[in-house]
Structures are given as C-alpha cells and as structure tokens.
Design a protein around this nucleic acid. Sequence first.
DNA 1: CTAACTGCAAACGTTTTGCAACTTT
DNA 2: AAAGTTGCAAAACGTTTGCAGTTAG
Lengths: 140, 140
Amino acid sequence: MKAQGIEKFQIEQELRDKGIQPTAQRVEVLYHLRTGRHQTADELFELLNEEFSMVSRATVYNTLNLMKDRGLIGEVVVEPGKSIFDANSHAHYHFYNVDTKELIDIPADQICVTCLPGYPAGKEFLGADVIIRIGERAPG
Amino acid sequence: MKAQGIEKFQIEQELRDKGIQPTAQRVEVLYHLRTGRHQTADELFELLNEEFSMVSRATVYNTLNLMKDRGLIGEVVVEPGKSIFDANSHAHYHFYNVDTKELIDIPADQICVTCLPGYPAGKEFLGADVIIRIGERAPG
DNA sequence: CTAACTGCAAACGTTTTGCAACTTT
DNA sequence: AAAGTTGCAAAACGTTTGCAGTTAG
C-alpha cells in the first residue's frame, strides 16, 4: 500500500513548476502532505520536527499558505477552529469522521454542484466545499 | 419585504421550548439573527451594542453556542477564520459570495448528500456542510 | 434563597508578522 | 551582492473561561 512511490525530486519539480523555490523545508512539508495526507498545520509541524527538527512553526504555516495560494494543496475547515490541509488540490469532497477526526475523500464525479437549479446567474464558480459529517452509530 | 413579522414573544417562546431562559440578551441575539440572518458573532455584538449597549462579547458567544447546541441556529464556517451564524437550523446548503461575503441559502431538496454511492457503511449521518463559493465574473 | 445569567478581563489556541540571520543564485 | 527564505518571539485574531456581581424563579 505504499504504491504511490512519490520521490522527493518529483516534489521539487512540482514546486519549481509553480514558481516556488524548492527549499528543504518546503520539500519536506509537501512530501509529508503527499504521503501522509490530511493533516493540520500543527500535526505537520510536530511530525517534521520529530524526524528532522528543521522546520519552524512559522515556516510550516507560511509554506502551507504559499502552496495553497499556488493551488498545490487544499485547505478544509472541518470544524470552527480546525483546518486540515489536503494534498489533493483537485475538485473533490469529503466525509469527515467526527469521532476519529479523519477526512475521507469523495471523488468529484459523485456530486455535481455546478448543475444546481438555483445557481446564481452572472456569477463565477470558484469552488465548493462539501463536508459530510459522519460518526459511529450511537451504541444505544 | 418585512413580511416575516417575527415578534419577540415568539422568540421567547422558542427559547423556552428548548429549555433556555429567555433573558433580554438572548432574545435580542436570536431576534437579530432571525431578522438579519447570516452574521458573524462579532457583527452581532457590534449591532446589538450600537442599538442597545446591553450585551457583552462573552454573552454573545455563549448565547450563540448555547443556541447552536440546542439546535436553534446553525454555524457555517465560510473561510478558515470566519464563522457565520445561521438563523435557519434546518438542513440546507449555501452559496457564499466571496466578494460580498454574503451567504445565500440553497434548499435542502436541491442536493442529496445522503444518497451518495460511496457512503460509508455503519456510520451515522450527522450533517453536511455544502458551501459553494461564487464571485463576480472576472471583469477581464 | 438558590440557581442561573452576565460582564469583565485574562487566558486560550491558532495563525500571522517584523526582523535579523542565513541560504541560495 | 542581491534576492529569497528561515526562525524566533511577539502580536494578532477569534473565541472561551473564571469569577464576582446581578438577576430571575
């Protein structure tokens, strides 16, 4: 199940393609996001420092914002104060397991949000967040 | 267009029905939410104090959380740091105009999220957030 | 009289920022 | 050398909390 086989040089290329200098910190951040998927900024910070102690909190945040602005990653707000970054920047949606706090992807083709009847005229579609909150069925 | 004609005594009753003491502050908060719709906690705080100067920030937040827990209102996180409270607690979805920061309701019957093919087995549906971000079409 | 509520101010957790030091080209 | 990047610590942001005083039942 480690079949994705992402190599760091690919990450470097990806960053360069978006005009981002592939510094060690940025490569690590994106690499971990691409392999681990679905983590908060702070989890990422902890994880990176446990292994490498080479990334400051500020850099993690700045890097994530930069990559988000350049469309390399996505940010999903799963509950009021909690954002999870998403390695997959393509249009897709999410199940959010409120018990495990885990985010599960839903392929974009399973929901069509641009074909809603009441879609406002003259407006541009910028994106859609679809978060379907699920949990263990109550044990009662 | 002020046809909804919500009276404060109705608000009081609504609060009592949910086991919430209808204090002056709580009635004002819910009344303003029911008439104005779609406001952040802070906007609500400003608005109430401009007219009455009778509600503290803490009370606004506590009141909103209480009413949210009791299912009287909803909370919609429209962008990472920004929550908008929603007078309508029934299942429904939203367009979010990123230019005007305005939230527009989409009736629940226009999207069916519980009938997704990949819906995880053995999990309970807790709710869904659907936020479709729109904006003025780029003037270029 | 008791329980509940409010407001203040301080604490909170997360994210952003200013700036000096350090890389990279 | 110039431009870009990093890390620290401080600040900012929205929100929550502890507690004393107030109000309601």
